[in-house]
């Protein structure tokens, strides 16, 4: 599934953005399938999702740079900083989620429920801003 994301990204032109979105969707669905059928551990699922989103973000950022500055401009420092920040934030999110998951609650369903609630509240706040 990661191949899907990797394989589509080098494609240029205007379709690139669509391909990158499709790659993210494919990876997300893949992670979900792995979570359902293989009952993989939370670390792997969280890590995979965060990495997928970070990869999507970097790809999209690269495309926007390409659109605005074309391909021959010097953009390395900006890309490195952006990639680094997104990855670091992703890692922090994963760690926070895991730590809360491990130590936050005794029963699994309850812990998941608390997190679900907080996540839902955040999402609602975002959606109805």
């Amino acid at each position: 599934m990661a191949l899907v994301g990797l394989g589509v990204r080098p494609l240029g032109q205007r379709v690139a953005r669509r391909f990158v979105s499709a790659g993210l969707a494919a990876m997300v669905v893949g992670v979900a399938l792995v979570g359902i059928f293989e009952a993989a551990g939370p670390l792997r699922l969280l890590g995979a999702t965060a990495a997928a989103i970070a990869a999507w973000d970097v790809a999209e950022h690269g495309i926007s740079l390409g659109e605005q500055l074309r391909t021959d401009a010097e953009t390395r420092s900006v890309e490195l900083l952006h990639t680094g920040t997104t990855s670091a934030y992703g890692a922090v999110t994963v760690v926070v989620a895991l730590v809360t998951y491990e130590y936050g609650a005794t029963g699994l369903p309850l812990g998941a429920l608390v997190l679900l609630l907080s996540a839902a509240v955040t999402l609602l706040a975002l959606l109805y801003r």
Binding site: L24, V28, V31, A32, G35, I36, A39, A40, G41, P42, L45, L46, T49, A50, I53, Y89, G90, T93, V94, V96, A97, T100, Y101, L108, P109, G111, A112, L115, L116, S118, A119, A120, T122, L123, L126
Partner: peptide, 29 residues
Amino acid sequence: VALFFVAVGVLTDRPATLLVGVVGAGMAV
């Protein structure tokens, strides 16, 4: 993405998948 994981986690009763929704929400914030 976050909503998707939450929905899948709830429907299939997989806490780990549900947890992924937290990462999604974190990224959305």
